[in-house]
Amino acid sequence: MSKTYHNSFFAMNTRFHAVFPNLDYNYADQVFHALKMEVNRIEQKISRFIPESDLSIINKTAFKHPVSLDEELFEILSSCKEYWKLTEGAFDVTLRPFITYWNEKPEPQRSTSQLSNIFNQVGMVHLHLDKSNRTISFDNKHIEIDLGGFGKGYALERVDSLLNTHNIKSAFISFGESSILTLGRHPAGDCWKVGLNNYLEPGSSIHEYPMQNSSMSTSANFYLDDNGTLCNHNHVIDPVKGVPVNDFISLAVFCNSSIIAEILSTALLVSSDSVIRNTMEKIEELNVVKIDYSSDEARVIKF
């Protein structure tokens, strides 16, 4: 019987895994269930897929009148707005209509005028937060907040806090294998050695990074199909052009905050190298790695 506790649950359309080495099983199980409850709570609040969630209610009504927010949701949406500014518009939680347009509209039905309409209707500039009344309002009915590029990071930040509260000294948390949180060190080493999977040689690492009390998040605009071919997914939008990013680029962000890692792994994927460098200057202890799969050989770019 392993001394290592491992358990998982399904949340936010993926699987959350917790690994606690050298911990009493019953205590580890108690901690795990505390994490599960917290992640589920967050999902119930900020999922756009759950009709009764606070976010769904905002999406349905904030274009009609200001909607009151609780303290937590106001903080979440305020930080989304701050990171939108910090990333020079690259992180934008209102771009869902573009994704819908590119994924659901057949090519013959697309037109520049439609795209231009979406441009005029969406964007964080049309989302207003009123600090004194703690409310949110939208300029028009086309705004729909999608916290897909934020939720897992926020959940991991809360998980980090809970693990500390429970005095957990060593843990490896994987949320869908694209967002990682580590506490302490691997039982057989001085850190958790994490490698970025090489899509051209699945199972091998193209870049290795030692993690200790830190977070990592990766993003890519492609996936491997069952034949091992890289395919684009139109789900990361360049906010400047309103078009999907079709480069075969993956990006990983290592830092001390799960939220920042999550936000930047998506935002910097659509950013120029100069924006990436500007962003890095504003945030301490940030490591960014970009991997270009455009050619037959993967190219690692470290910032």
């Binding site: 967002s179 690492s205 990361v236």
Partner: peptide, 29 residues
């Protein structure tokens, strides 16, 4: 998933090796 499985096996055999993980926002099939 394979990476977590590998990690658990490493911990059990007291080895600290690099775990290839992650990458896509969209989950591979």
């Amino acid at each position: 998933p394979p990476a977590i499985d590998e990690l658990l096996q490493n911990i059990d055999s007291n080895k600290s090796e690099t775990i290839p993980i992650g990458g896509a926002t969209w989950i591979p099939s």
